[in-house]
């Protein structure tokens, strides 16, 4: 399987790995940033309830 992917003249394996890794890294990065944003919103809401301050909707 690996031989076929990396050894054939079309270099399918290299293309698959490049595209796969690119979108994996970019996807994970997006996910981390989005989750962090959600976490910060929750922390801010909680703090606002405690202190009775309002900042942003």
């Amino acid at each position: 399987m690996l031989d076929w992917l990396f050894g054939n003249g079309a270099y399918t394996g290299f293309i698959v790995v490049s595209y796969g890794l690119t979108f994996l890294v970019l996807g994970v990065l997006s996910l981390i940033l989005a989750l962090d944003l959600r976490k910060q919103w929750r922390a801010l809401r909680l703090l606002e309830q405690e202190t009775g301050r309002r900042s942003w909707k």
Partner: peptide, 12 residues
């Protein structure tokens, strides 16, 4: 996304 989190962090 990242800047929004950072602004929120500083607000907190």
């Amino acid at each position: 996304l990242s800047m929004r989190s950072e602004v929120l962090k500083r607000r907190i």
